[in-house]
Amino acid sequence: MASRMGLEIMYEEAKDAIEKASDLRELDQIRIEYLGKKGKITSVLKSLGKLSPEERKEIGLVANKVRQNLETDIAEKQEELSRLEIERRLALESVDITLPGRQPVFGNRHLIAKVIQDITNIFIGLGYKIAEGPEIELDYYNFKALNTPADHPARSLQDTFYIKRESIHPSDNDILLRTHTSPVQIRVMKKQGPPVYIIAPGKAFRRDVPDPTHSPMFHQVEGLAVDKGITFGDLKGTLEEFTRQMFGKDRQIRLRPHFFPFTEPSAEVDVSCAVCRGAGCRICGTGWLEILGAGMVDPNVLMEVGYNPEEVSGFAFGMGVERIAMLMYGVPDIRMFFDNDMRFVKQF
């Protein structure tokens, strides 16, 4: 039977073993050895009944004290060992953070599509809807309804691609590849009454031999607003809002009078150069970069689609997407857009 002294020696031994324990498993062995069901301290406590009341009291007191102390010591040691164990694991699991990550494979949007989306998003925010139309058009929608005279140079075989007659159903109307996305205006207005707020992105074709600034196919975004009381001031304000969102808050626009058959008054619109801010530099020359053509819808166009120009008025504008992309991203050659070199496509 353990004496008071014996218990104290037992405690010292246990304490010593706890301190020396190098991992949680060893510590658990020690716990079982002393405090387990058949552990040394447990045995002492179990056999207290065999002692005299005085002894029982004294030994019981000491043994309980030893048990409590051991429990505390083990808990402390356990905490320490857990911490060490985590530290060991962390040290073991360190990686070379400079190795490249496992990237999911991602494709890119074509730059032209991206620029079209940027443009259309701005106009969607201004209350416009996207309208689309065919790339092969009747002369009527592409020219005639847009107030373009029959002998206008743009209609010549030099400038416009025409479709071979025998390859299609004979009709009185010439068929051609649209030279702008403006015919979408006519199609929309013929289908619905005012108000009309649309933006029409798409492909257009002109009979240009490919070179750094020309392409037989290119993209245009056309805009049209027809409503009661639309003014030239509204056109200016709309284009200013577009410019600020598209090119930056500090960019300005300048409208120069111009001539288009389908608008009057008409304007060419310049945006101030990003580099020199309108002062003139090597990139822009004059300080301004031409970005679009615009104007008030000609009354003849409104009448052609059955609108009354005394009741509604409107503005229209059209911009070349490639040109804007070239200006914004510094692309030097329009043909790059259609070569689709992956080293180009993946840049944007």
Partner: peptide, 27 residues
């Protein structure tokens, strides 16, 4: 009207935005 606009100066015309009630943008 175009003659008046261009001599008055396009850039002197005050900017505004259409005041339509009936327009809803979106895809």
């Amino acid at each position: 009207i175009e003659e008046i606009a261009r001599i008055y100066g396009y850039n002197n015309i005050e900017s505004s935005l259409p005041e339509s009630s009936g327009k809803q943008g979106g895809l």
